[in-house]
Design a protein around this nucleic acid. Structure first.
Lengths: 109, 109
DNA sequence: CGGATTACTCTGCCTGTCAAAGTAATTTTA
DNA sequence: TAAAATTACTTTGACAGGCAGAGTAATCCG
C-alpha cells in the first residue's frame, strides 16, 4: 500500500476518470481502484464519499439513484461537461508535476 | 505554479535530496527549488521551516549554526544516515506512485 | 539614514484524509 | 429460517501538512 499523501491531490482526477468511462457508484469505484492497482492503493470509504461531496458541490459530478442489486440502494455518479474539462486540465497538470518531482528524484543511483 | 497538494508528501524527499548534495540552509533551499523548477514550484517559507522541524525531530536531518554573510545567521542542515535511507526509500516509492497515477491518467487523448 | 534583501520563527487557519461507528438491504449459509 | 456475510452509503470528529501573515534581526547599498 502506498501512502495516501502520495495520491493526495490526484484523487479527484482518479475518480473523475473512472466515472468518465461510465456512470459508476461508490462501492464499485472503490473496488475498481483496488483491482486496477493490484491492491497497491485502496481508497478509504470515508475519503471516497468526501470526494463525491466535493466534486458534486463543484458541479464536476451529478448523481442519481440507481437500482438495488444486493445491499443498499446505489447512488450513481455521472460526469458533467465541467468535470470533463477539469479532468483534462488535471491530466496536463499531472504531466508537469511528474517532471518537477523527477527533477529531484533522479540521478541518485 | 503547480498546486502544492501535488507536491505534498514529496516535500520531505525533495528537501532531503538537496541537502544530500551538500549542507544547505533554508533560504538557499527555497531559492534552489524555485530555480530548478523554473518557478513552476516555490516552497513557502512557513512550509519549509515546518519541514525542517519535522525532519530534525525524526532524526533525518541535523543542524548547526553557520556564518552570517548578509542578513540573519544561517542555520545549516546536514543529512543523517537515517535520512539517506529514508530518501532512498522515498525514491522507490515515487516510482511506484508514478505508475499507479499513470494508470488513471493515461489513455484519455 | 532608510529601504531592499537575506534569513529565520511563530501562530492560527484551511483542506484533505481517515478511523470509527452507524444504518439498511440483500444474499449466503448453516 | 435465523444468523452471518456482503453490499452500499452516511456522519462525526480528529489529525497532519501546507500556508498566510506577522514579527524579529542583521546586512548591504545608495
Amino acid at each position: 500500500m502506498i501512502r495516501s499523501d502520495f495520491i493526495r491531490g490526484h484523487l479527484d482526477a482518479i475518480i473523475l476518470r473512472l466515472i468518465l468511462e461510465k456512470d459508476r457508484y461508490g462501492y464499485e469505484i472503490s473496488k475498481e481502484i483496488s483491482s486496477r492497482t493490484n491492491d497497491r492503493y485502496q481508497i478509504k470509504e470515508a475519503t471516497l464519499y468526501a470526494v463525491f461531496q466535493r466534486l458534486e458541490k463543484k458541479e464536476l459530478l451529478e448523481s442519481y439513484l440507481g437500482g438495488i442489486s444486493k445491499g443498499g440502494k446505489r447512488k450513481y455518479y455521472t460526469i458533467t461537461t465541467l468535470g470533463k474539462a477539469y479532468l483534462k486540465e488535471s491530466v496536463a497538470e499531472w504531466k508537469v508535476t511528474k517532471n518537477i518531482i523527477d527533477l529531484f528524484m533522479e540521478g541518485l543511483d
